[in-house]
Design a protein around this nucleic acid. Structure first.
Lengths: 126, 126
DNA sequence: CAGTATCCTGCACGATACTG
DNA sequence: CAGTATCGTGCAGGATACTG
């Protein structure tokens, strides 16, 4: 969800670089707003490994509560990253899956994973 | 790189997929921990455009307070992403710059920027 | 200029109980 | 099974003032 951003104040003399800088900051913030929080990425990652039901996701993500899982799934659904499908069997089965749009996050996540793994290595050496 | 296409569930006894899943989640969380918060990425991006002094960064990032800038710079320095250099002229000049390690974030940030820009486009159309 | 020192507030997140 | 409903609380972040 795009939150309202504060308008930049323009200072004379540095408008060129300042503009370039803001041009990067804003989209990066947009991306981070979508992904931020403790549970969104874990949920997304879990779903990239296959469609899952509510309780399956809960099991795969240690520590998450029903409330948080429910809320975060709703957020992700609103942003069209995740699709919720209800099969009206008895009892009701609800399946969550990544949308095509959600899958477009793959490269971002892969870069985060690579950097994070390398960072972890680096920390351990000390 | 060989990617096994694994389908389906993570029921009892199926530790394999769960392990793979956790193996992704943890480094991604590590990366996000470093970058999370309202100001870290803006500061990093600002510094990728060149070394800056404290007040220059403050000017380039609308809304940030001295306190937050100071705190975040200290965090980034501790993680060795940013270097702080004091020139003992009069008055004292302090210059902040990205370390080589900090620059290794470039690809991550670029992916975030690309996705964020595209996402912004998508939102605007609605 | 380059920051600290205080004080304050909201809300992200948690614990627990309950439901169709 | 797939979630709500309530009731907390810690801490990220903000406002404002001050300093070497």
């Amino acid at each position: 969800m795009v939150k309202e951003k504060k308008k930049e104040s323009c200072f004379k003399g540095e408008e060129l670089e300042h503009g370039k800088c803001m041009g990067m900051i804003m989209p990066v913030r947009d991306a981070l707003d979508i992904l931020s929080g403790k549970w969104k990425l874990p949920i997304i990652i879990s779903l990239t490994f296959g469609n899952k039901r509510f309780s399956q996701i809960a099991k795969e993500i240690p520590g998450i509560t029903d409330k948080m899982l429910s809320k975060e799934l709703r957020d992700l659904e609103m942003n069209e990253l995740v699709k919720r499908t209800v099969y009206d069997s008895v009892p009701v089965v609800v399946e969550y899956s990544m949308t095509a749009y959600g899958k477009s996050l793959n490269k971002v996540i892969e870069e985060l994973r690579k950097w994070g793994a390398q960072h972890r290595q680096r920390i351990m050496k000390k």
